[in-house]
Design a protein around this nucleic acid. Structure first.
Lengths: 198, 198, 198, 198
DNA sequence: CATGAATGAGAATTCATTCAT
DNA sequence: AATGAATGAATTCTCATTCAT
């Protein structure tokens, strides 16, 4: 904002680290973790291969940082929505549109998070982040169930179904079977709410 | 020992081919296509590495055959269900339980089909099979919509949502967040029907 | 000997394995284990780099096999000598000349075994072989001590000194400070016997 | 705090240089030259990697300086001993105990000098230092031979044998086969003198 | 048909050295 | 002098594919 803050060039290491993460995300959202090579990431980040290893101890460390940062970014979209809702229905709308907006603003992050099977390389810390995001939504569901707005069923089951429905739409959109547009999102929102509503 | 048993012995090549496909499925459903190596497949199939290449031109060809055979096997579970249904609700029940039974009887095939991102290596012929399965279900949805049993919305959207919901449940079950049992499947069935019903 | 035995070509894998070991020995006796690269070994053996890994799980495995085979070959030169001796003095002569002949017939093996520090990469099995060779000589020393031919002192100390003396000669010969010829070996034999004799 | 203590503070560069050499010695005596990395040396010396290159043109230059300084330090232990001896026997005792004391006071330097194969990276200047130390001892041997105290044989041969015997003891001590203690050193001294004596 | 040793390009990772700060 | 991020060639090891047997 001030001249001061813009004059001071951000330290190079932080920028390099971010460039590496961005490049890795772009590549790993398109292909799989396994099919993405370190030299490819380096080339796309505009650095030498060895530079990756100044910032991360291994390729696996990169994908774990990526997973956690992406998941936490997604959480920001969801938390916001749930927090500002006055009714369960509105809260659900916020969640659903939060997912949509996240997948629009950060398409690579969404594809990376939801289109892949991360289990083989995720560290406990990363699974913990995943779990925490899940728990946040589960709390919302439990409160809505107490108010009688959402059907009586294990929150985990309902979340799996609803979240899976969103991902299903996104996945078919990727194959071109369906359009991932405002209209279909709205249809999805209403349909999925019917699935959850008591 | 008897003439009978030796006379109609299935020719070895076909059995070898199947052993290779079974081994590949077992490995690729556990890890990814990329993380599965040809020597591994050979070892598990009990054949030499070179033998794989007598039956398939490449590793990619193996995964494509696997994809098509698995998808068609899944289709058998779904087609049966839809064909024998007298009402849309019953048809949906058949589809939903068909998915469940398929995932129970052929867990590797289900995991292979639904837990991985196949796009980078699927041939057009494989995508065509996928498309055909999708179309079969879409026809069912269209008929149900004409009868006023399923809500008015693009069938592709509804199928994506419903199928995604099932996969979502299966995926969370894999992480241990949820149990993939009869009870939760029944909860899912009713919930998802509410999503589809007019 | 017979036409039969020469006609039957030795199986290729065994010959490849030996070519790799020979190449590794030649290189690792000249430079160190660490300074010898796998592609170098492959090139000298006349095989592709990957072939090394068909026969050995790692570079470390190669150096361990090399160590054990070399040590056992050396043992053959020593055991023979000790076994056929009628007096301790004659036995020592056999040991000393056995070392000399081994270092003449297998100069690379000798240099590899005695000029390097193997501890960082030797497996227990390799250390065991080393220990066994040492023990064989220690038994000889103990018997000679009982006969009053060799001075009363811990056999390990005497062997370390005597063996070290031989290696010292070989080492200085390598730097060119001394000639490793028949004459100097004879001088060494007598001198070292004076060191050991009671 | 006092003028004294700040006035004669040794200039920082020299201290940095020594810290680097000490760190390099500690690492290279434990592992090999090849297995020791420049960043490791820097970390242990408490300086940045780049700082090494302000004081030495290359890693090879470091190891050469190290070799020469260690060899000259060893020479001090030997020269002293030989100079103050009144008889050859006493001179030998001084040499032998000098080696022992050097290996006790500077175990890293001794291990570095004697347990490794330096030929591949030593510069002529370093070989010259080695030669000079050798010559100093050779002169002592020649004088002792003239007095009839040491047997008639090429001094180089006798030195190689005697020095090799000491190193042999040290080497086996490193493997744990033998104790490198006062008692065994005394046994060694007498035994080796018997090897040399006329 | 079947074998499995051999290939060699390419993977992840390391490290001596440089250079802008 | 000192720093330490950056480089990129070199290292160990892997693996899809071939081919002589």
């Amino acid at each position: 904002m001030s001249v001061r803050s813009t004059r001071r060039k951000r330290p190079a290491p932080a920028r390099t680290r971010e460039a590496i993460l961005r490049a890795a995300l772009e590549l790993m959202s398109g292909h799989s973790y396994e099919a993405t090579t370190v030299p490819e990431i380096a080339a796309r980040a505009g650095v030498a291969t060895g530079t990756i290893y100044l910032h991360f101890p291994s390729k696996e460390a990169v994908v774990n940082v990526l997973y956690r940062e992406s998941k936490l970014e997604m959480q920001r979209f969801l938390a916001n929505a749930m927090a500002s809702a006055s009714t369960p229905r509105e809260g659900f709308r916020g969640l659903w549109r939060g997912l949509f907006e996240f997948s629009r603003k950060h398409p690579e992050a969404f594809r990376f998070l939801e289109m892949h099977r991360h289990l083989p390389y995720l560290e406990p810390a990363s699974l913990e982040v995943s779990r925490a995001v899940f728990e946040g939504v589960a709390d919302f569901v439990r409160r809505a169930q107490k108010q009688g707005a959402i059907r009586k069923a294990p929150p985990e089951v309902l979340i799996s179904l609803a979240f899976g429905a969103f991902v299903g739409l996104a996945k078919e959109a990727e194959c071109g079977h369906v359009r991932f547009n405002e209209r279909n999102i709205r249809i999805g929102e209403e349909a999925v709410w019917n699935m959850l509503a008591a």
